[in-house]
Design a protein around this nucleic acid. Sequence first.
DNA 1: ACTTATTTTAAACAATTGTTTAAAAAGCAT
DNA 2: ATGCTTTTTAAACAATTGTTTAAAATAAGT
Lengths: 213, 213
Amino acid sequence: MQRDKKMKKDLSTEQKIKDAARKVFMTKGFSGCTTREIAKSVGINVALLNYYFRSKGKLFELILEAALSDFIEAMVEVFSMDLSLEDKTRMLIDKEFEFLRKHPELPLFIHAGLNQESDNDFDQSNFLGRLHQTGIFEQCEKAQEEGKMRKVNMINVTLLFMSNCHFPIMSKKLICGIYQMNESQHEERLNEHQEIVKEMLINYLFPNTFKNA
Amino acid sequence: MQRDKKMKKDLSTEQKIKDAARKVFMTKGFSGCTTREIAKSVGINVALLNYYFRSKGKLFELILEAALSDFIEAMVEVFSMDLSLEDKTRMLIDKEFEFLRKHPELPLFIHAGLNQESDNDFDQSNFLGRLHQTGIFEQCEKAQEEGKMRKVNMINVTLLFMSNCHFPIMSKKLICGIYQMNESQHEERLNEHQEIVKEMLINYLFPNTFKNA
DNA sequence: ACTTATTTTAAACAATTGTTTAAAAAGCAT
DNA sequence: ATGCTTTTTAAACAATTGTTTAAAATAAGT
């Protein structure tokens, strides 16, 4: 009678395992760490890990799904606001940079994690549906018909946002390595980049509002 | 007397190992594969792998370094051409997309690989120096002083290019997962994105040459 | 042909892996 | 306290890991 039957306990152990697993998986990846490492960082026995979650793989899938959900939810939050598309653009980029500064390992973890998994059916959380519910697609479609927004496929719009927000964060080591920068120098570049991306994307997606550089 | 003493042999075994290691490391990452897996894919014994290269780690570093060099070299090639900055921009993006379509695992491999390593001193190949030799920095500086190019730090310029070329490739699984796309649909988005990125970056970096959308 | 150096292999090494088993400890109702 | 369930542990499992050793096969030099 594993869990699932009665769940009255304090939940703290299960949650502590998840937290530790998240931290370890994030920084080292699935095959880059061991179950014992995770257990040790919680202060529990290895067997307890398989007691709560059935296997290392199952635990990983859980963490990965949660990570995906986290960052889709950040988009949903902004899209649900009552703002113009230009303001949503600015807001999304700012929120994304802010969020990713706190969780810089997240993008790389997600992409590497998805590549590790064999099946790509992460439709369980219905991310597309959650995005649709915000009405962002209709808002864009309307703006595009009115000539206020450049007619670009929404998938490409998504790519533009994600490319310019996620990549600068995940490429930290590469960029610092090439340009021989330290942490604070990179931070400075990142801050400037945040403004660059905002201006560039708004200029490109809403060309009528800005006619000058 | 390992290697290094006399190297007259045909080299094919050593190269075959490198090729196989590159392929396996690329798709599965350092800790995602085993030395036996690599050896098997070459058709040799495991010990031979440690005979040519001293350890799994050493072999990995070699592959990673070569991968980094490969993609810096692609940039160097374009920067060395006798073209205007606008043309170099277009050329670089096209070459980058073309190159990455052939090696889609490369960016993720590099970023994940750099995170796995403890020391980030990959200055051995002197990437920055190679970039400087092309004269691209002077060309940009001159254009910026003449008001033909937006005054943006070269590190940010690098980030803009890499973000918009690398990320669309490495995010394939994520984007396909969210938007429920198959291979060919994704390919279509990618082709369109290539044009989008070209126009967007040129509009942003060289605002004088294009005043309209 | 003989000697020497290089390349390749089979086998073993000790350490670590994810997972399971069986028993102990802790909680909880009665 | 007594039973029962849930939580936690220690120990063991078989499989796999990277690496090494010692011997065999091949090539090269004379």
